[in-house]
Simulated scan of single mutants.
Amino acid sequence: MKKISLFTAFFSLMLLGCNSEPTLQKYFVESTESNDFIAVDLSTNILKLEQTKLSAEEDKALKTIEKMNILAFKADGTNQAKFESEKAKLQTILKDKKYQELMKVSSGKEGGAVYFVGEDNAIDEFVLYANKKEAGFAVVRVLGDNMDPASIMTMLSILKKSNIDLEQLKPLQAMVPQ
């Protein structure tokens, strides 16, 4: 009887642990298998910064960011239905209460938003989402530990000082119209 109770408890925990709800991470993983998507993972090493040239604030901000995941869907005349479907899936995921909206912009055919996961001064993930009906959409996940909005703004200033290795960004060139 004791074994049956233990087995039942273990099985119940396993079922509860298997969350079937869509998550942004699952969406990224599943989408990389499709030819309509381009995925790129970047670490802060891409910036090729000299640590001695960073201010204390910049160094602190850089240390809170672990990596960035970029997922882009290139829309064209042949895949508009899939574009709309994928965009709807993504928007459903981002409506989850764990994604707190910081900012949203929209102008009919295009729009964007910035979300975060975590507490105001201990953010674990920033999500930047942008879409344009004729071009597609892109989602950028900035993953880190104890980030804050000021860290992201500081990172933008660090980008100006960086010597980015553009070779790592080659897969995204297909998204930019020539």
Rank of each mutant, 00 (worst) to 15 (best):
M1E: 06
K2M: 09
K2V: 10
S5N: 09
S5Q: 11
S5C: 09
L6K: 12
F7T: 08
T8K: 09
T8R: 11
T8D: 06
A9G: 07
F10Y: 12
S12I: 13
M14V: 15
M14R: 09
E21H: 11
P22E: 13
T23N: 02
T23C: 00
L24Q: 06
Q25S: 09
Y27A: 05
V29H: 05
S31W: 01
D36W: 01
D36A: 07
F37M: 05
I38H: 05
I38C: 04
I38T: 09
A39G: 10
V40K: 05
V40I: 07
V40F: 07
D41W: 04
T44P: 01
T44Y: 02
I46K: 02
K48E: 14
E50S: 15
E50V: 10
T52H: 08
T52M: 13
K53Q: 06
K53I: 00
L54R: 05
L54G: 06
L54C: 06
S55I: 04
S55G: 10
A56C: 05
A56I: 14
E57A: 09
E58G: 08
E58Y: 07
D59L: 11
D59F: 05
A61G: 02
A61L: 01
K63P: 03
T64K: 03
I65W: 03
N69P: 00
I70L: 14
L71Y: 08
K74G: 10
A75N: 12
A75Q: 12
A75S: 12
D76A: 00
T78L: 10
T78D: 10
T78C: 01
A81Q: 08
F83A: 03
E84N: 08
A88I: 02
A88K: 12
Q91E: 15
K95G: 03
K95F: 04
K95C: 03
K97R: 11
K98L: 15
K98F: 06
Y99C: 05
Y99V: 11
Q100R: 14
M103F: 12
K104H: 12
S106F: 08
S106Q: 10
S107H: 10
E110D: 09
G112D: 04
A113E: 09
Y115H: 11
V117N: 09
E119Q: 07
N121M: 11
D124E: 08
D124A: 06
D124T: 08
D124V: 04
E125I: 03
F126A: 06
V127M: 11
L128N: 01
Y129I: 05
Y129G: 08
K132C: 08
K132D: 14
K133P: 00
A135I: 13
G136H: 07
G136S: 01
F137D: 00
F137E: 00
A138G: 15
V139S: 09
V142K: 06
V142Y: 04
V142S: 04
L143W: 04
L143F: 06
G144I: 03
M147G: 03
M147F: 05
A150Y: 02
A150R: 07
S151R: 02
I152V: 10
L156Y: 11
S157F: 10
S157T: 13
L159Y: 15
K161E: 06
K161Y: 00
S162A: 15
L166A: 11
L166S: 11
L169E: 03
L169T: 05
L169W: 01
L172Y: 14
Q173P: 03
A174C: 02
A174Q: 07
M175E: 11
V176Y: 03
V176P: 02
